[in-house]
Design a protein around this nucleic acid. Sequence first.
RNA 1: GCCGGGAUGGCGGAACUGGCAGACGCAGCGGACUCAAAAUCCGCCGAGGGCAACCUCGUGGGGGUUCGACCCCCCCUCCCGGCACCA
Length: 879
Amino acid sequence: MAPQDANKTSAQEVRYDPAELEIRWQQQWAAQSDLYRAHPLGQGAPKYYVLEMLPYPSGQLHMGHVRNYSIGDALARYMWMQGYNVLHPMGWDAFGLPAENAALKNNMPPRQWTLANIAQMRRQMERLGFSYDWQTEVTTCLPEYYRWNQWFFLRMLERGLAYRKQSKVNWCPECATVLANEQVIDSCCWRHEETKVEQRDLEQWFLRITDYAQELVDGLEKLSGWPEKVRTMQRNWIGRSAGATIDFAVEEQGGAEDNEPGRRHGKTPLPALEGFNSNSVKDAAEKIRIFTTRLDTIYGATSVQLAPQHPLVAQFAASDHRLRSEVDSLLEEQRKAREQDAFGALEKHGVFTGRFAINHYNGERLPIWVANYVLLEYGSGAIMAVPAHDERDYEFARKYGLEIRIVVLPRRTEPLTEGERQEPVLPYIEEDSLLINSGDYNTLGCMEAREKMAAFAQGHGFGEATVTFRLKDWGISRQRYWGTPIPILYCHKDGIVPVPDDQLPVLLPENIEITQQGGSPLAKIPEFVNAVCPKCGGPARRETDTMDTFVDSSWYFYRYTDARNSGEPFAPERAAYWFPIDQYIGGVEHAILHLIYSRFWTKVMRDLGLIKNDEPAERLFTQGMVIKNGAKMSKSKGNVVSPDDMIARYGADATRAYALFAAPPDRDLDWQEDGVAGVSRFLSRVYRLGMRYAPQVRTAAKTAAPSTSPVAQRLLRKLHRTIRKITQDFAGRWHFNTSVAAIMELVNEIVSAESEIAALPASESAVLAAALLRPLVLLLAPFAPYLAAELWQAIGATDAILRHPWPRFDENLAREEEIEIPVQINGKLRAVISIPREADNEALQKAALEEERVQAAIAGKQIIKVIIVPGKLINIVVK
RNA sequence: GCCGGGAUGGCGGAACUGGCAGACGCAGCGGACUCAAAAUCCGCCGAGGGCAACCUCGUGGGGGUUCGACCCCCCCUCCCGGCACCA
């Protein structure tokens, strides 16, 4: 081929070959081990910790990962260029069931399978050119990491934050293990969306996340850098509600003749308030504890409702066959409804127990019912039913003919007119109201009555103001092999014995046979199970369950600050320097799982004195899903796009830049391969532009000021506007789709001005080209780092572009001399006039009125008003 | 049912604080280069009307506020996500 012609339109231009160029730079970067390394303690430079959620090593990156990491990498590169000391790490959430399944299928040890996948995915990440410091890589399935899970567990055990109890737990038959509440979605397993979760009664280890429930809710108010959506989801999940627990005494059976449930029970033989003795309540044979958020309506309670699973129900039913069989059918009905996911739609059903409870506020006897809409898991599994002021109780009372007594009335500002009824529409649930039919509390407002009533109950020992949470403690035991062993021993003599710190880690045995049947795989390995009790030296049995993998991801980002520390989880001074994370980026699917556990873990670590921050991350960003043909990419839909394919066809830069260009990062992204091709064409155009001018730019003096020729003025103005826009995008809305579009506009404008540039004197055109191309390449660096590095070198730079200062914009250069002002007549656009920027309103109005089309439009009409928005628009109102 | 988010050309999207609707890209159409194709480059590209200059309509639907509304207010429809008998 003939040597390249100097003419700018040469047909033999060098071709953009992303594969060649990218692999060349990848090798060069791999050789520079400290390229992406942050100083662990800063040394003066301001710190910036940007973190993307670590992946599960399935073996293949998917487009969601590529999008997530492209966002994070653009930010990390930008922050380096802004002069920050940037921590940008990556790791592997490497424990979990898929490794066991793969082991069964391929007859390959989980560890080997996992590590091979990690190697494969790391290659993909390196090929994509992400700026991770691999020196801080964290792999959660390695003993160097999971020993600290065990260490934290022991610290929690010491503080009573870890405990063991027998309870009903969620069991996924597919996973053959227990799941946490957070891992059950629509009563199905989060990993097996088709598999219904069963309830099993098992002994499990729990972490007392509920101890932090209040702080976890309160903290959400301060997390202004988190999406409102995530904060709302967490608030709902924690489900705080303030109310009161109140005890009702259960009347001895046969204590009263009147056993008709629907009847009014105005007067009773039981003690009224004055004769009330709190001891008699405590000593009562039975009591029912209810939870209510509407204590103010307690005078309107006309029955007490128990959940069918409530212990008292079984007790009542023991001597009552009719009740037994009716309760059984309630339970059966519930079970069926749960199975069909129709629990919420279940019609309210109940049965009268024949027993009565005493309302200590007024001494009334209330019939005790069993109702299918009362949940055992929430509150105390029992409620007082106030039909007049609760929708569900109302529905139930109407069905069974129970009394409906109004005790709350709307506040009125005017007296009743004649004939107007006082009754509100039922059920009346407003709280900005006044009490009636409520003894001493009549005429009080709801809020005030609640406080006084709670104080009364407390004073008499039958209740108090309480706060209830929907959040339950975190069950972490898993009957699986591939996870962190729980460091506990069971000794006949000493009971539950923690493994001493100096015996950590409790190593997960290798080379074992994996089966999916019959409980924890570890239980079948005698060498693992049989141990020595550290207290008495006698034989002990090891705990054979492993920890939920969400333990691993609850604190991994602290380990990045000190990943090779073998004496402690991390050095506190390092965490103090780096935390909180400045920007955390990941999928919204972790809004409740990972993000609530890791907030909990942070608070525990703070209370252990290891860290000073209350929350792990200052700012959180949740990117949208990657979809194709209107659906989330999935194997079953057959719409999966492989990152490897995209890279092979268009290169890493084009794949990454497209992931940023196709949609704003917080919205779903519809993957269209033609769009990737378009971005690739754009990068090719930039490449050819850069290469055309590289020889001139190399010779141009860096400090020389570009000429004041019109073309230079115009292009520099565009350049500075582009710098300003992209800088603002990083600082603000993160609309990188418009950042990339802005670079495209700039490139288009330079390319179409090339003949004008060529017409300038040779030295001037070189200076102008340099003044345009150097910043252009810098702007490109966060979005297409390979191409930027290549061009940076081609135009004669010798430093690493990653550490080169981000270009600054000059407001004066960005400003237009002549601005275009739209002219509206009655709000409709009629003309656009060009006018000097400094022109005052008078001159602007004059110019507008003189404009030909404006003249035509206002001819014969009367000008009523002229609205001028300086620098923006002029609107002439005519009649 | 409740709480979030959304609806703009054939498609993805832009319009930052109420001020030129459709930037940028894709697809499409026409042209240049070529024996031809690829690549590249140039032009057109919301709908309707008009030879044209231009005119009218147009941001899910209906009302309103305003000189002016994709943007603010009220009502409604649909889509996505979360929670859901939580007392």
